[in-house]
Amino acid sequence: MSQHVKEITGAEYEREVAQAAGPVVLDFFSTECPPCEALAPKYEAVAEQFAGKATFLKIFRQGNRDLASKLGVTGSPTLVFFKNGQEVGERLGGEDIKRTAIKAQVEAMLG
């Protein structure tokens, strides 16, 4: 199981993301989504690498529709980046999310 990526629900979004200090990455995932399966180990590896510096969260889209529509997320996987509760940078999505691309965005937030 994931040690460095914590799963949250829509109800925890305010506390875990909007009011969080420091960089947060949020992964919207779905079931029956091979690109989501592909992202999981890469996301975990980056989370491990930045442990203590940035927070890595994931949220199950099907169970948290309201938050997905509030943020306008319509695809899985989607990575959304936040700094001090504000969305920053570009969202990453689809099958081609590279480990190096996630790292680059997190490094930019830590900049």
Partner: peptide, 17 residues
């Protein structure tokens, strides 16, 4: 609008719609 309304994978994103 990629991931904000535009998709390329029906099995992944169909349930959003």
């Amino acid at each position: 609008f990629k991931g904000r309304g535009i998709s390329y994978c029906a099995t992944c994103d169909g349930a959003y719609f």
